[in-house]
Design a binder for these strands. Structure first.
Lengths: 141, 141
DNA sequence: CAGAACCGTTGCATTGAGACATGATTGCAC
DNA sequence: GTGCAATCATGTCTCAATGCAACGGTTCTG
């Protein structure tokens, strides 16, 4: 429990430290775009478990912040393609970078032997978690 | 990174699985009350880094949901004491229980030796994280 | 071509978070 | 007792998230 809480603290800090003003739902959308590439608003909506209209407004805000781009698709002009902009990708990368750095910082305080053991164990844990297929898994910060 | 994401997924699920309709800020408030006991709204506010008025409204909503109790203190009738109600405590406990269960379930898929190694490593990690004193640490779900 | 099916957007409404300023009690020092 | 400080509560405002319903293009099908 303590470990999970500690990791959560790291995650929360890495998110909070980004000064760009992005809410959690917005960040989740960015994550999806970063991991799955360009998405249609409807896909985004179903991934995030919200209605299409919510996805549209969210994209509105992200477009205003220039974190995503929104273009109509030429082949089927009904569709819209939402993509992470350069700034959006930078933001996501930055959060990830901070998280890595924080975790590395924590591990750095350990003696080498412990550190190796922890890294191995985290790999094992990640493998165990990965074997239980979960739908929304990966849509998280 | 994968391990941290997996743990985050566990946390998110344990939160989402509670059908009581509680937002993240509200849950954070419940956590604080659970860990530190009765609080004055002002203390709650400073812990959660919001203004007193925000804390008051949050308590309004939590009182409506009967997750906390709010009473004036007899000794100093200016003060208000906010306490976790039985239902509130049950909710917090339930989330914790689910989280433990999920993590235990994951670990259960591992062979005994790996499991022990992971548990040790998580303890080590928690200790390392605990040595870096962090202000908001512990206010997290 | 006409209608169906699809996709995204928009209007309208609700809820929660959050801030700031203001008011109302209460306690304390003088 | 007066005055000041502490402590909440309230009024008012803004903004984000969210859902439902209705609308407006686009494409597909008969």
């Amino acid at each position: 429990m303590t470990a999970s809480r500690a990791l959560l603290a790291v995650v929360a800090r890495s998110l909070a430290s980004v000064d760009e003003d992005v809410t959690l739902p917005q960040y989740r959308a960015l994550i999806v775009l970063g991991q799955r590439g360009a998405q249609r608003p409807a896909d985004l909506a179903s991934t995030l478990a919200v209605t299409p209209s919510t996805a549209t407004r969210m994209c509105d805000r992200l477009v205003t912040k220039e974190l995503v781009d929104r273009d109509r698709v030429a082949e089927d002009r009904r569709e819209v393609r939402v993509t992470l902009s350069d700034r959006g990708r930078t933001l996501v990368d930055e959060v990830t970078r901070r998280r890595r750095a924080e975790i590395a910082g924590l591990l750095g305080t350990l003696p080498q032997a412990d550190r190796d053991a922890v890294v191995d164990a985290l790999h094992t844990f990640a493998r165990a978690a990965g074997e239980v297929p979960e739908p929304e898994w990966a849509v998280l910060p």
